[in-house]
Every structure is written in C-alpha cells, then in structure tokens.
Write a protein that binds this DNA or RNA. Structure first.
Lengths: 141, 141
DNA sequence: AACAAAAATGTAAGGATTACAAGTTAATTA
DNA sequence: TAATTAACTTGTAATCCTTACATTTTTGTT
C-alpha cells in the first residue's frame, strides 16, 4: 500500500497521518504477519531509527480504538495485531508459535444465546499443529 | 460437588487430590463465574487462610495442563478460568466486565481452512453489552 | 513415630504494558 | 517567514500479572 493511500485511509478514520503512523499501518497491511509489538519494533526500527516502543504502543492502541486494526489475544503474554478486520479466525501452532489466518463461514452458526446481547466484536481462536510442523514430525519417524 | 466426587475426579485425571486442589476445583465447578486469579484468591483465602497466590497459580496451571479446566484469555491483562471444558463461547460485557457463557452449535460451521491443521483447542470470544447493562441504559433515557 | 516424596509458601524476579513529563515536530495565524 | 499552539514522539520509571526458586509444611507409607 503506497503512502498516499495509507494516509487517506488514516484520515478517513479520524487519525492524523503522521509519518510513524503511516509506516506502522503499511507494515501491518503488507506483511500480514500478526506481529507482536517486539517483532514490529525490531523490524521497523531499522528504517525508523528514532522509533520508540511507547510510540508503537500508542499507535497500535489508537488503531484498535478507531477500528482499523484488530487486537489478537491468542498469546497469553503478548498482544498481536492484524490489519485485516474482516471476520476470520486465527490458529497458533503450539509447536512453532506461528499464527495463521483461518477463513470462516459465519452465516451457518447458531448463536441463539447472543440474542439478548449487543455484540461488538467476535474472535475465533484455535491452537494446534500447523502443516509444516506436522510434516517435520513425520520425517523424524 | 462434594469433596469425595471432586477428589475422585482429580485422581481420574492424574492429579493428586490435596485439600487445596479439591477446594479450588470445587470453587470453579460451583460458581461458574469465570474468575480471575485475584477474585478466586479473595474468595478462597477466607476459608483457607494459609492459601498463597503462588499455590493458586500452580494449581490452575496444573488443571489447565491436565485438561480439566480451560483458560479464558478474553481479558487482555488477566487470565480467567472455567471448569466447563465443553465447547462453548464467552462474551465479556464491555460496560460491566462480566463474562457470560454463550452456547454454540459448532457442527454447522465451515472450517475449510482447518483441513491441514491438527486442531487441539477452539476458543470463541465476543465483546459487547449484556442485557442488564442495555436495560440500565434505557432507563436513563 | 520416622521417613521420603510431594505440595504449599513467601519473596524476589521477570516481562509486557502504561503513566508521565519533557522534547520535538507539524500546523496555523499573523 | 516568524511566532504560536497543538499534537505527536520519546525515554524513564512505575505498574501489574505471572513465574522462579529455595524453604517449610504437609502427606502418605513403612
């Protein structure tokens, strides 16, 4: 996503498009890697040497607040972030730790108990073994 | 759940039934309140004055490891625990913070993307406003 | 009652996140 | 363009949940 597009997208969502914010948003859109703050910081500080972790936290919290990024709490101790806010699930491999997108068809789910609630967010998480780790396991047999 | 039943249940799952462990498990089964560690500790220390938080953490981690309790990570900063390990969702009210059980019919969901994965756990979380808070909102209009 | 193994305790440490005050950048006005 | 103001960014210190670890206590067995 080019800088102009990102800038406009931020403006559309009531976020002032500073340089840092644009780069953070571009990172999430381009990589789609469900990064932790630490991973993002390590990657971004290379091209933005003055970046501070507090700024990264502030920026991500702002994005989540404005609804353009969703917070993934699949890890118990570290937050992860996703610029794809459409309804989909995530699976974290309990062997390698990688987080994968899982497409869903929500229309067929029966959520009778939700009738009386006003739902704001939906999150679906799985834990398991990813294909790559399954194959490696086979080769060691 | 009486002490004998709880004790046997723990034994069946390869857990030595100490007094503390029995009481912690009974607490979760009886209250079904999805408690944080802090809430559990405050409640249990009344009847078990010597209880330490470390023991509570150790006990809960053991229960999760052995599969008789599931860990709910719906809160960003605090873990919650549930003795009901059957497949169901949770909703946390963004107004009052209460966590509710949400019944699900999983059979109808299309999880095509999961084909290649070996799934170990499934978690479904919602955030929204609970009926009680919705009604309170109305009465203030 | 004595012994060995396991569980429980309390303190200290770890690690992710936030608070806060100061510094810097960007936008606005004249 | 210079001055002014607001907003963003920074770095350190503090907070809070959770775990490490060494010691003490309890439990179960001879």
């Amino acid at each position: 996503m080019d800088t102009g597009t990102a800038s406009n997208f931020l403006k559309m969502h009531d976020i002032k498009p500073s340089h840092h914010r644009i780069r953070v948003f571009q990172y999430l859109v381009e990589r789609r890697n469900h990064p932790t703050v630490d991973v993002m910081f390590r990657d971004l500080v290379v091209e933005i040497p003055t970046l501070s972790k507090t700024t990264l936290y502030n920026t991500l919290n702002l994005f989540v607040e404005k609804g353009i990024v969703s917070l993934i709490t699949i890890d118990e101790n570290e937050s992860r972030y996703d610029a794809d806010t459409s309804l989909h699930g995530h699976l974290q491999c309990s062997n390698c730790g990688e987080v994968y997108d899982i497409g869903l068809r929500f229309s067929s789910i029966d959520f009778a108990d939700l009738d009386k609630f006003q739902v704001e967010e939906s999150h679906i998480y799985f834990r398991g073994i990813c294909p790559r780790c399954l194959n490696e396991g086979d080769s060691h047999k």
